[in-house]
């Protein structure tokens, strides 16, 4: 972990937790009100590649966690150093009852399909996203299927197992 970057982050933002998690990864935990500012700050520091945007459902804590993984693009092989391998994992938590967050498509345009996917599978709404339409799923689901309270086994029993065989097999 780059000590200078850690100091800069800690001096710029309040309530930020920067921890080295080994294997060239560092975790940045931040409150959701500041998450966009942190992402913009990191992009200016050279972390211009959003490798992944994902979500975690913490049902017991009644929170959704959004995970942004940022790395650098290396334009020139001469600039390559050990520290340019660093992956920053930015984590922020939002309340689970009304899951809503701002879109980061203004900062990282590549986040558009990721946000559509999370909207579809977790039901998190992204304000300002221009195309929050269904992406993968064909069927409608009452509870978004990647949430912990979605019972897949019960759903399969109710939907796919209820469909009868088309032909009488005894014939």
């Amino acid at each position: 972990m780059n000590e200078r970057l850690k100091k800069e982050l800690e001096s710029t933002f309040k309530d930020i937790l920067v921890a080295d998690s080994g294997d060239n990864c560092a975790t940045v935990t931040i409150k959701y009100s500041q998450a966009l500012a942190v992402l913009r700050f990191l992009k200016d520091k050279g972390f211009d590649h959003l490798a992944l945007l994902s979500a975690v459902d913490w049902i017991e804590e009644k929170e959704h966690e959004l995970v942004y993984i940022l790395t650098r693009y290396i334009q020139n092989i001469d600039e390559y150093r050990d520290e340019s391998k660093l992956h920053l994992i930015v984590k922020t938590r939002i309340p689970r009852d009304e899951p809503q967050f701002q879109t980061i498509t203004g900062i990282f345009p590549i986040a558009e399909p990721y946000e559509r996917e999370i909207h579809e599978l977790f039901g998190i709404k992204f304000e300002g996203h221009k195309r929050l339409t269904p992406l993968f799923l064909e069927r409608g689901y009452k509870i978004p299927p990647f949430r912990k309270d979605f019972d897949t086994r019960k759903y399969v029993e109710e939907v796919f197992d209820k469909i009868p065989f088309a032909e009488n097999k005894d014939k």
Partner: peptide, 12 residues
């Protein structure tokens, strides 16, 4: 077999 989006028994 218990996936939310996978068809079981294609011969249906």
């Amino acid at each position: 077999w218990d996936s939310y989006n996978t068809i079981k028994h294609l011969d249906k």
